[in-house]
Each structure stands twice: as C-alpha cells, then as structure tokens.
C-alpha cells in the first residue's frame, strides 16, 4: 500500500514543526518511517547530512531520533522513575553490565529525575507506571523520549484521549521544549498545533499540500478546501 506518496519535508533545527491532515493522510506512517519502524520503498531520509534510510530503529535512536507513541507505550510494571532511567540508560553506554545495581548509577538516576521534573511528574516518580492516570502516562511517554536526549523528537498525538485540563498541562510541557528541542509534532488538536508550532505542514493522502507558518496555513485556500472539505470551520475556530 502506498501511504506516503510524495513527501518532501525539511525540519529546521530548534523548531516545532507540526504535521496535520485528515485521518488516513499518512501522518503516523511518516513518523514510523522516520523512526525506522517502517522501511520506505523509495526515497531518501537524511538526518543531519547522513543517509539513514536503511538504518534500523535502535541505530536511528542512537543518532538522536526519539519518538513517542499515539497509544501509550511504557513499561507498566516499572515505577515512573525506572521507566525514565531505562531511557537514560539507553544513551549511557552499553548495558552489558551484570553486577552493579541499576538503581545505583547516580548520574543516570539524577538525569531521570531532571526529566521527570521537566514534565511535572516528580511527585509521582515512585508510582508504578501502570497505576498512573492516562494524562500522567502521556507525560511519561514524552519524558522517556526526552530522556534519550534526542536531537529530533517525533511526537505522535501527545494529546490523544486527554481532557481539557490534561491537554493544558501537555501544551505547557511542549512549550517548554521550544527552542531547546527540534520537534516533529503530529496532532489533531488544532488549539495545540496553532499555539505551539513554528511551522505547519499539511498532509493529505500521503502528499504535502502546504507548508508554512501558522498564519500562512490558516489563510491557505487549498488547505481549507482539501483538509477540511468544508468552509474551514475548524481552522477559523482555532
């Protein structure tokens, strides 16, 4: 199946670049291809000047591409801080260390605590991840991606399934990433997109139909027509 038909996308360092589009536009597929979970049939993925089209997932991660998942993907049996520590550990040398207590590496633990603070979960650090609320699990999801100290962060609908209050918190967390991290954000929540994004790309049926600033996208006639199929009420609303 051809999902990503023609996507030409450049992500600028330090920006939050949002990708929007109707269901089935290929947004998640795009993320999976960037992360290496899906191999493209053709085309080229370059990361900081290096061709990574054929690299497996873990090697891309080591190069600095981290992703979060639309469906929460954490380690429910571990505590929140252990979840993040595991992510830190991934970028802290190899883990063929068989004797010393994993919780005894103070550098790893401190880094994990810092990330938890960044997403506002430090009070819940010792709680089993499976026992956290949905919103907290979504925050943890971001924390784990951040903990690998990525150069590029791929976020797949971080607000999925969130209530208004939880969304506010997530937006605050993501705003904190601005300038420090390069983010590719896939999101349905237009409020979030128009608040956070420096640049927006609109994807329809695997094709990029427009890329530009928030204002440019809002006033783009083709976007209004193709993306919404009506008078663009959602865009006006935002």
């Amino acid at each position: 199946m051809m999902v990503s038909t023609q996507i030409d996308l450049s992500i600028v360092r330090g920006e939050i670049h949002a990708v929007i589009g109707p269901n089935g536009a290929g947004k998640t597929t795009l993320l999976a291809q960037l992360a290496g979970e899906l191999k493209p049939d053709a085309g080229l993925i370059e990361f900081m000047g290096q061709d990574i089209s054929l690299l497996p997932v873990h090697k891309r991660s080591r190069l600095g591409i981290a992703r979060s998942y639309q469906i929460t993907s954490i380690f429910p049996g571990f505590s929140a801080v252990d979840n993040v520590a595991l992510a830190v550990q991934a970028g802290n040398g190899h883990s063929f260390r068989f004797w010393r207590d994993a919780r005894g590496y103070s550098a790893v633990r401190e880094a994990a605590w810092k990330v938890l603070q960044r997403v506002g979960l430090e009070q819940r650090a010792q709680v089993r991840a499976g026992h956290l609320s949905h919103g907290e699990q979504r925050q943890l999801e971001i924390a784990m991606a951040l903990a690998t100290r990525p150069k590029l962060l791929l976020l797949d609908e971080p607000m999925a399934g969130m209530g208004a209050e939880e969304s506010e918190r997530m937006i605050a967390t993501l705003r904190g990433l601005k300038g420090e991290n390069t983010v590719l954000l896939v999101e349905h929540d237009m409020d979030a997109v128009f608040t956070l994004a420096d640049r927006v790309t609109v994807l329809v049926y695997g094709r990029v139909i427009a890329t530009g600033s928030v204002d440019q996208i809002r006033s783009d006639a083709a976007v209004r027509k193709a993306y919404l199929g009506d008078e663009g009420s959602a865009l006006n609303y935002a």
């Binding site: 954490i74 550990q89 260390r97 068989f98 004797w99 010393r100 994993a102």
Partner: peptide, 14 residues
C-alpha cells in the same frame, strides 16, 4: 537488578 536485568525486563514488557 543490574542494568542488564532492567534491559531484559524492559524487552519482556515492551
């Protein structure tokens, strides 16, 4: 409980 052990359990879970 070592780093290796944490990785192994992480793989089991996800």
């Amino acid at each position: 409980q070592s780093r290796f052990g944490m990785v192994i359990q992480g793989i089991r879970d996800n």
